[in-house]
Design a binder for these strands. Structure first.
Lengths: 195, 195
DNA sequence: GTCTATAGATCGATAGAC
DNA sequence: GTCTATCGATCTATAGAC
């Protein structure tokens, strides 16, 4: 069947998402115009509105997709036996997953305040689910006497903050391989919750 | 001497800084207009340009003042003897200082990409100086055999990321006092670099 | 599904009166 | 030092042709 006049591609949707991801990460949501996104894709600004009701929805979709991907990948990952091995698994998983998606991670942290209240609540709930995954591991380890942390909730946030920090400095081809980075962080995480 | 006509205050300058601080932290630099800042202060937009050459300079001044304040406060703080006590001192200092200035800290982390290249380089240099303060402590502790870290540079960034994370969740009047928070983080920091 | 064109609002920054 | 007024650019979103 012949294509409708003016329709040049059926993958414009994903290309718009990719352009928004790149530009939001680079300049920030508020600083990026719909015209810039359209130019990156190679269409006119009006055409974007065939794929999104507004700019806010583009941001929300990027962030929600990222959080759902994160939770799904975690749930599908092979969980080893025992709190210590599970903590090692989480450390490794977190560093790898976040390292593979620097733009999504950056947006997920920096653009929370640009979400509408309803959208913000939804993203925060997903983030809470992810934090719970780590806290569950820490609680089990404390119960088994393998970990000592004064407060599992704070330890959860502290470990995640430490691990996510990798994204602020790691560059592929730098002084350290990703394996080395993982080993270094695992050493620190392991000790930080040691009895 | 009589006041110049139209001059209603000689503290307009600081009030503009305060308004910019509040609004940039709340909505982000790019999302805040000069008219919004002026309204917060109670003047017209044009009057702002008696105090700043442009919007970019307002952001840079906020960030530079914050970083210089941070370095000055650190240098003026009483440094104890020995790497372990110095690390405890740093942990306590970092949490307190950052907790007292949530808006400045937020801007200093979130608005780096909105700085001009020259301004960015200057802020990054100051940040590097602060990181060096911690790395110096860690190096001394490793040399003395009191610490074990696979890489002092990464350990520096990991500890700072962990400690700065306090600002994302701590609220005055919450479940934990600041003393308790400091104790919890000190326990984790101390162990994370333990031999 | 994409285009052109535009409505309607808002932006940063400046000019000139007082 | 602050005001009013405005320039020229840019913004999001929509309307209608094809």
């Amino acid at each position: 069947m012949a294509r409708t006049q003016g329709s040049h591609s059926d993958i414009t949707g994903p290309r718009i998402q990719a352009a928004a991801l790149k530009l939001f990460a680079q300049h920030g949501y508020a600083a990026v115009s719909m015209r810039q996104i359209a130019k990156e894709v190679g269409v006119q600004a009006g055409a974007l509105y065939n794929y999104t009701p507004d700019k806010q929805s583009m941001l929300f979709r990027l962030m929600k997709t990222h959080m759902v991907d994160l939770l799904t990948a975690w749930e599908e990952s092979e969980s080893p036996e025992g709190p210590l091995e599970q903590l090692r698994h989480f450390t490794r998983f977190h560093i790898r997953f976040h390292r593979e998606r620097p733009e999504e991670v950056f947006i997920a942290y920096m653009e929370l305040r640009n979400l509408s209240p309803e959208n913000f609540a939804e993203i925060e709930a997903l983030r809470g689910q992810y934090e719970n995954a780590l806290e569950t591991i820490l609680k089990a380890g404390v119960e088994a006497g393998q970990f000592h942390v004064p407060d599992t909730k704070i330890a959860t946030l502290a470990v995640i903050a430490m691990l996510t920090g990798v994204n602020t400095w790691y560059r592929a081809g730098g002084r350290l391989s990703l394996d080395e980075v993982e080993a270094i962080y695992w050493d620190m995480v392991r000790k930080s919750v040691a009895p």
